[in-house]
Design a protein around this nucleic acid. Structure first.
Lengths: 129, 129
DNA sequence: CTTGACCCTATAGTTACTACAGGGTGTAGA
DNA sequence: TCTACACCCTGTAGTAACTATAGGGTCAAG
């Protein structure tokens, strides 16, 4: 499997695959005589895992931890749970922030009377009194 | 007004003020004999505007446009309104994305039975079948 | 006269990629 | 056989919006 095939199979860009190798998230594969990367199914599984975790919004460092944890199948699930819960809390915080922001913006945009900038409520909201 | 005073007055870091000057969001102020930046009230007003817009999540480039627009008081408010509405749409999109993400994470975290990694539902969700 | 809090410039680091530049390889059609 | 084209390689720089560091200078109080 060449890098382009792996990339396609995981909906990843080729450059991103190479980037994951550079930051040691993905182990360097064997090379062909032409120095092309040759991937096997273990790489496909690993990259799929990475992409799903990234899609769920886990940071690269969190993914790195999850990968390490998932490699030791006999270990307790506690650490995995902690990472996921921490991430969930963070996502909830962001939703809260954005929801507050939306109210503000709704208010600001709703106040616009489409006159000149001098009487613009949006600019007024931003400008100091 | 020295840079530290301006920074304190606008809840901005000194480095950030210098950064805004470097990217020409804030005009270079006069200098004292010791080469210290000397700010006036117009700088304070400008930086306050910038900070409020940033707090509302506008990008630096959007802030730059808003500043330009707010300088021409006789112009129509339309362009301002467009920028704000575009931003509101973007915020709503992000809220949607994060809300979907939260459901996924809720499901995943809720499935954890706190056993070993081998039977961990979180890892199972991430690993390819 | 020295200590500490400030100020200066210039540069590099952060996150997670993405995009070149400048090359080499492999294969299908004319 | 030639050549076009899609792919592969390395290395470096760019993105957003700061933040942090190194290595200096200035100023007021004790």
């Amino acid at each position: 499997m060449k890098i382009g095939d792996l990339a396609k199979a995981t909906a990843t860009k080729v450059e991103t695959v190479r980037y994951y190798e550079r930051i040691a998230l993905l182990s360097p594969p064997a090379r062909t005589s032409a120095n092309y990367r040759a991937y096997g199914s273990e790489h496909l599984a690993r990259l799929s895992f990475i992409r799903r975790a990234r899609d769920l919004g886990f940071t690269i460092e969190a993914v790195r931890e999850l990968l390490t944890l998932s490699d030791d199948r006999s270990q307790s699930c506690q650490a995995v749970d902690n990472i996921a819960r921490a991430h969930l809390t963070e996502v909830e915080r962001k939703i809260g922030d954005l929801t507050a922001l939306r109210s503000e913006l709704d208010r600001v945009v709703g106040a616009c009377r489409h006159g000149t900038v001098a009487e613009c409520k949006i600019i007024e909201t931003l400008a100091p009194r």
